[in-house]
């Protein structure tokens, strides 16, 4: 199965989120090219043994974030936005920056301390 997803019930993330993440990474890696038709909601549900409503929710989120487009009556397709892969990576970076800030707050670092650490990291990777 070339378009299979790997879902796990013991993963901390909810099923719909796992579906969203795995389809997003397939698209950002280029495995699922622009305009490729996605499996129908029922087909993917049967394949992955996940309820129809869960796949529906995942597709709705994927559409909201611009990864796929849904044409009523025809099904869903990988979005044809020219810079989609770039955008997805940017989204990922924004997310990780968010996590970075949260962690720094938990450690009660000042903004200067955080910036200094980031600066140091950037220099060491040059």
């Amino acid at each position: 199965m070339s378009d299979g997803l790997f879902l796990s019930a013991t993963d901390k993330k909810p099923m719909y989120e796992q579906i969203v993440e795995q389809i997003t990474s397939k698209v950002s890696l280029g495995n699922w090219p622009a305009n490729m038709p996605l499996p129908s909601i029922r087909e993917l549900a049967a394949q992955t043994q996940v309820s129809v409503i869960t796949v529906k929710r995942a597709y709705a989120e994927l559409e909201l974030s611009g990864v796929i487009v849904t044409q009523p009556g025809r099904g869903s397709f990988v979005s044809a936005q020219p810079d989609l892969q770039q955008q997805l990576k940017q989204q990922q970076l924004t997310q990780q920056l968010q996590q970075l800030v949260e962690l720094a707050r938990q450690l009660q670092l000042t903004d200067q301390q955080l910036l200094a650490q980031l600066q140091q990291k950037l220099e060491s990777q040059r």
Binding site: R42, A46, Q49
Partner: peptide
């Protein structure tokens, strides 16, 4: 059994 039940999801 679950695999067979999941197969029913194909049919609306």
């Amino acid at each position: 059994v679950i695999t067979e039940l999941a197969d029913i999801l194909r049919d609306d």
